[in-house]
Amino acid sequence: MFLEASNLNFSFWDNKSKQILKGVSFSIEKGETLVIVGSSGSGKSTILRLISGILPEKNDSFSGEIKINNEKLNKFLDSGKLSFMFQQPALLPNYSVKENIEIPLKIKNEDRGIEKVLETVGLEQYQNYLPKQLSGGMRTRVALARSFVTKPELLLLDEPFSALDVAWKDALYHELKQLVNKFNTTVILVTHDIEEALKLGDKIICLGINGNIILEKNNINEENLFSMLEEKIIENHKLRKEYEKIS
């Protein structure tokens, strides 16, 4: 098993009564893509932030264990084999496309060519452009290239394609798959787009409003999975509305 998360419970320090994650457990094999879906506020991004070490912050309430390669999470995080792609591309506006992609290498003092990554995402002729000169889709491509430049073992994707149109999404799915296969990267993708989840994932978990797993499927090709997920998410959304009304 590459990554194993067991019994994750989490709530923020300033609202401990609201449990964001409740007994969440899952595991992923090397090279697999796990997709986490669920309605807004169900704790999808929190899982990524816990795996990346951004959370828990001081005084947050957290219990559970995350192991990677059967070792403690911190050891993996310090090895620099993790990459993260945010919903916003988080590009440095003062740096060109090429410089942005090179940032992780600069931090590690590695002098490696980035031509292959640039070629895969089709950015060769834009490498000297500043982010402000690029469209939203192109910026996401730069962030994608940056995520792969260090050949990460684990890539966390926090709704990186949510702001893009269908044509851009399709092109980026293709590039992502190419890069994942090339580097045999394990991916955890958070999304609220079920179609995207089914296109990119190998296995899927759906989180409910109480921060627990309400559906888990290891076979993404299962019949009626789309409608099953849609139903679960809508049902959960209604539950939340009712809960909000009561409270």
Binding site: S52, G53, I54, L82, S83, F84, F86, A90, I107, K108
Partner: peptide, 15 residues
């Protein structure tokens, strides 16, 4: 400075 840039630097363990 956007929060996600700080977080990115944290993930990359930037000195």
């Amino acid at each position: 400075i956007p929060k996600n840039i700080h977080e990115l630097m944290f993930i990359y363990r930037a000195p």
